[in-house]
Structure formats: structure tokens, C-alpha cells
Design a protein around this nucleic acid. Structure first.
Lengths: 335, 335
DNA sequence: GAATGGAGATGAATCGATTCAGGTTTGTTT
DNA sequence: AAACAAACCTGAATCGATTCATCTCCATTC
């Protein structure tokens, strides 16, 4: 039914080996053959069967990307960066969104292993080092995205989350805030811990007394942000914090929506808010949101490049790529 | 190197055929064999080679999804819906984001054809019917997403865009607005035309005179929305429209940002805005955005289900699935 | 006890691209 | 004209899972 390399060979009057060579190393074939094969391919509408190619040559043309939260524009940007680099190499991306669910994370790792992806990019939710080690044993390079590899066993591309947390808190303190609430969770997400740790460090190093309390959320979503905000303003006003540092922008946007009392927006006069990631919607919020920017596309692009390099060289050693975060000040922390 | 079905067979003391049967039709194999094979698989850590399977059996376990705009939360939700259905069937999604670029769209179609995906979901940008027809000839079912198939040649899953456009305009008119500007583009995107057509129909059927002008954008992005908004308020105030109907929520959010004069927000008092899609961020906007909601997850889930059904039955006939849009009123059209 | 049938197991052939040892042609050198 | 090298081609073997025609047992029937 489908047109195979054999049909092309017959049509062009050459052997299958030659057709394969035209496809893969055209410079070792005479110009004559190249043009005849090319024409035959054209006429027959031949498309290479990637399954056969993968089976025989062992080279895969797909890379898996397992993402923590597909609804988060930050990750969309990271994926976009990875795509840019992937298409440059004729590689397609197998996409999996775990939505902060261990089951889904395992599922996708299984699925991508069967698919024998060339490499794997992952923004992990649970502890997956065991699984990743196994994938690597099978020749699938793994790169952690948006997450520093603590033990240095895998390459990673991320920003310095602790520094980001510090910058956020320092900014709040510089704005005159003294009672900071960190809103985020769950705390088995590494970045959440790091950002909080950075904030605490900033508070300790401040030359004024600054408190940092934690308001835990179940997930990093707008809805959880709304809920956390409601809990906060249900306290007597004297117990309100004067600044909120949200673990990501989605939470921050949620907080913003609930920080309205008697039709009056508490932000930024009464309470300042700063988020994390600087997603495109942060600037469009009810009160434009200050945030810690990550170079998201660059993270994706770099991660994909590294994964390809590592599959090309099995003796490469894991490396940690860390980009600096950047403070973006908008109205939500004015004053 | 890798563990193959042959190794499993040896270990379990059975033939390769039996191992394959255990994997694919366990009920035709004795319980004895099943358990021995299962154990061998466990011990050896065997993982099925999908390339070989695909080559021989001709069944693919991936479905391609080509998306118009990966930065648009609407599409993220659609993808999420498709994912849900896909994982249920052990299928992985090859993801491609065209970002409203013809070249990228063609690229992904080529890539996915080589990959021999089982089926293809596509929110098309350009005219791809030729390419899709060809894919179908090769046994790859194609389903249009967020886009009605005009000629009925392909199955599609979408909402009634014309009705959505009508609802939006009728709502604006009911709010007392008479000078509507439709902001969107490019007009080779079918949905844009439909939404505008719906709005025009509503204007004509109104029992009061209503004008509909078009402010064209180059893309459906926040940035283009900002630019369009700036163009609008640069007119003398008497030439301002009193309502804006944005072709999608991203544009609407952009418009919102630029509709501020002398620190005063023109929305909704001076100018009303309604968007389209009802993305999660619409509710969190500076002025919460009225919008026309699409059942995005359901669209994705349905599309994937249809594509699987069609690959199972080569004689299935294309069907158009159309969901109703839903008006969501928020503050941006108050008064 | 021979015949029949059913349940299960076997293993060679197969899918299509790649690889590579060996073959052919052409051109150059002595 | 023989020898040799370079440039190209050829086609069988191969990757690993699936398929299916055959075969082996064993129980049942007459």
C-alpha cells in the first residue's frame, strides 16, 4: 500500500542501498543518481517510514517533554523554546502534561520509554530519579527543566530559585514591607522550597526586623491563589500581612482577585504582591503584577540542545545550567 | 544491548510467539505461560519496542496535534482534554505549535507524516486540505479542531462561531451599545470571519441602528490587542466606538491594557469589551472580561475520540460536531 | 482403540530502512 | 597494456515485534 524505499529504487532504476544513501549521505552518491532518486521520490510521493528507520538505525527523531503544569503559560513558553530548537533538527516533541499528579507522571515516563524517545526533558513533580536513571541506562538522555539537579546526576536547566526568592523579598522589604506571607505549595516541589528559602534569607539579612510566614496551597493554580487570599483577608485586619510573595504568577493572580474588601482593592496600598515567572498575563492583571522573570524560552531551547548533545556523546558528563532571575517591578508593589 | 522479546522468551522457556501473545491476547494463552512470561518481563525489565511494533503491525500509538497558538490558554485546555482521552488508550501526543506561521504548519505536517501518527488533530492556520487529504490516503485520520469543515470532507469539532459572534454582539447591543468595533485578524483564519459575520448579523437584526466596523490585527495576541487599542484611542474621542468585540480573549486583554486615558480606565463606562474563548485569565483581568465561552476540554476530548474511531473504521464518514458557545457576562460589559 | 476436536505453543516469514562487504566502472599511472 | 585507485553501486543481512500456518497434546466420542 504505502510507497517504500524499494518502490523508489525500482522507479529510479537503482538499488535500495543507493536510495538510502541519497537520503542520508547524498555527497557519496553521483549527482545523476541523486537527481533520479529525488525525482522518483517526488513522483511517488514517498515519505520515509520513521518506524523502520528507528528500528534499524536505532536513532529516534522524537524527544519527550514532561511538563508539570500545561496550563501555566510559563511552561508553554519553555515548550515553545524547545520546539524551536527541535524543529531545527527535524525532531518532533512528544508532549505530556502531568498536572501535578504522580500517576500521570509515571504514565508518561512509561509511554515515552516505549516510544524510545531520543531524549527526555522533564519538569518533575515527584521523585523520578530512579526512573530517569533507568531511562539513561537505555540510552535516553534526561534533562531536568526548571529544576536544579541536587545530586548532579543529571543535567539541568533552570534559574537560581533561591536568588529569585531573595530578590523578591528584598524588593518587598525595600518597599517598606515588614510582614511577608509566602503563598505556595505543595512543598514537595523543589522550587517552592527554594523560593521560600531565598525569601527567608533576605528577611534574616535585612537590617530591620522582617517576618516571613507561610500560607500553604495544595497546588500552584489561580484557584488555589483565590482560596489562599480569602483565608488571609478573613483574618482581622490587624493580622494581615503587608506583603505577599506568591510562589508563581498563577497564585499571585488568584490572590489579587480575592484581595478586595468592600469593593476596595487592597493591592498595593494595604498589601503588596509579587509573583514568580513573569508570565505574559502578569502585566495584564487587574493590578499589573510585579514578578521575578525567568528566561523561559531560553530555558527550553537550552534544555533541548543539551539533550541532543548528550545523546550524541554517551560519555558527556551532566552539567547544571543556571540562568539569573530578573526582578520586574509593576504596580502591585508600588509604594 | 536492549532486552528484546527473544530474551524474554528464552528466560521464560517459551517461544517468541507466545510472548507476543501474552502481550497482545493474554486470554489465548495458558495461565501458566502468562505468569512465567510476566515474571520474565519483570526480571529483565523488558519494555516493548514501539518502533518494531509499529513497523510490523502497522499500528501507531501516537497522535499528532497541530495547534494554532500554543501561547493561548484556550488551546492548552483543548490539548489537555485530548491528553485525557489519549492516555486512556495508551496513546502519546506529538505536539506542534505553528504560531500562525505557514512554514511551521507545513513542517509539522511533514514531521508527523514521517512519524506515521495514528491520527492527526489540527487547528489549521492556512489551507491544509490538500495535505490532509494526502494524509488520509495514507491511513491517517484527520480531525479539524476549533474549526468547522466547510466542505464536510473531514470530521471537525468546534463551536458555532457565527452563533458566538451573534451572541457577543447581541449582548453589547442589549447593553445599549450602538457603535461596535470588531478587533481581530488575520482574516484568513476562518473563525475570525465567522465571528465577525455573526456580529454583523446581530447588528442587522437589531431593531435599532448599530454599526460594526473592523479594526484588523496581524495576529491574535495580547501585543496586537495593545496596538489595536492604541490606534483606537488615538482617534478623537467622538470617533471612538462604544464597544469592542475582540476575536479572542488575548486581543481583548491587550485592548484592556491600552484603554486607559489620563490614568482613567475607559472600560466599561466609556467602552465595553467582550472577548472570545473565556480563558481562565479573562476573569482575572484588570476589568474582569465578558467573553464567549467554549467547552475547550470537551472539544479536545471529543476530537481525540473521533480520530481514534475513524482510524478503527476506514469506512466511517466525516461528521461535524458543533458545541454551543455560552455567554459569560462580567464587568467589562457592565452598564 | 481409533477418530475427532480444541487448546496452546511454535517459529519462520514479514514490515521497511540501513549498513557494509564486496562488486563494477572509470580514470590514471607507469 | 597492465596495475591500481577512486568513485559508485549493489543486495543480502539486520533491527524486534507480530502473524499465522503447523504442530503437539490431551480429552472426548463412538
Amino acid at each position: 500500500m504505502a510507497v517504500s524505499i524499494r518502490d523508489v529504487a525500482t522507479r529510479a532504476g537503482v538499488s535500495v542501498g543507493t536510495v538510502s544513501n541519497v537520503l542520508n549521505r547524498p555527497d557519496e552518491v553521483s549527482a545523476e543518481s541523486v537527481s533520479r532518486v529525488t525525482q522518483a521520490i517526488e513522483e511517488l510521493g514517498y515519505v520515509r517510514n520513521d518506524a523502520a528507520r528507528k528500528l534499524r538505525a536505532g536513532v529516534s527523531t522524537t524527544v519527550g517533554f514532561v511538563v508539570l503544569d500545561g496550563q501555566n503559560p510559563f511552561f508553554n513558553d519553555v515548550v515553545r523554546g524547545a520546539e524551536d530548537e527541535a524543529t531545527k533538527h527535524g525532531i518532533a516533541i512528544l508532549y505530556g502534561n502531568t498536572d501535578e499528579d504522580h500517576g500521570r507522571e509515571r504514565l508518561y515516563l512509561d509511554l515515552f520509554e516505549e516510544q524510545q524517545v531520543r531524549g527526555l526533558l522533564i519538569a518533575p513533580y515527584g521523585d523520578v530519579t530512579g526512573r530517569l536513571r533507568r531511562l539513561r541506562e537505555r540510552g535516553i538522555a534526561c534533562v531536568l527543566v526548571d529544576r536544579f539537579s541536587g545530586d548532579g546526576k543529571f543535567s539541568s536547566v533552570s534559574i537560581d530559585s533561591v536568588a529569585g526568592g531573595r530578590m523578591a523579598a528584598e524588593h518587598l522589604i525595600a518597599c517598606g514591607r515588614r510582614r511577608i506571607a509566602f503563598v505556595g505549595g505543595p512543598f514537595d516541589i523543589r522550587q517552592v522550597n527554594d523560593r521560600l528559602a531565598g525569601a527567608r534569607a533576605a528577611a534574616e539579612n535585612a537590617h530591620v526586623p522582617v517576618s516571613v510566614e507561610v500560607v500553604a496551597t495544595e497546588a500552584m493554580t489561580v484557584a488555589e491563589g483565590v482560596a489562599a487570599g480569602a483565608r488571609i483577608i478573613s483574618r482581622p485586619p490587624t493580622a494581615w500581612p503587608d506583603a505577599l510573595f506568591a510562589a508563581n504568577d498563577l497564585i499571585a493572580l488568584g490572590l489579587l482577585q480575592s484581595l478586595i474588601v468592600d469593593g476596595r482593592m487592597l493591592v498595593p496600598d494595604r498589601i503588596a504582591i509579587i509573583g514568580f515567572d513573569d508570565i505574559p498575563f502578569a502585566a495584564a492583571a487587574a493590578v499589573p503584577l510585579s514578578s521575578i522573570r525567568q528566561p523561559s524560552r531560553m530555558i527550553g531551547r537550552t534544555a533541548l540542545r543539551i539533550v541532543l548533545e548528550e545523546t550524541a556523546d554517551p560519555y558527556s558528563i551532566p552539567r547544571q545550567t543556571v540562568f539569573p532571575p530578573e526582578l520586574v517591578v509593576r504596580r502591585s508593589t508600588a509604594g
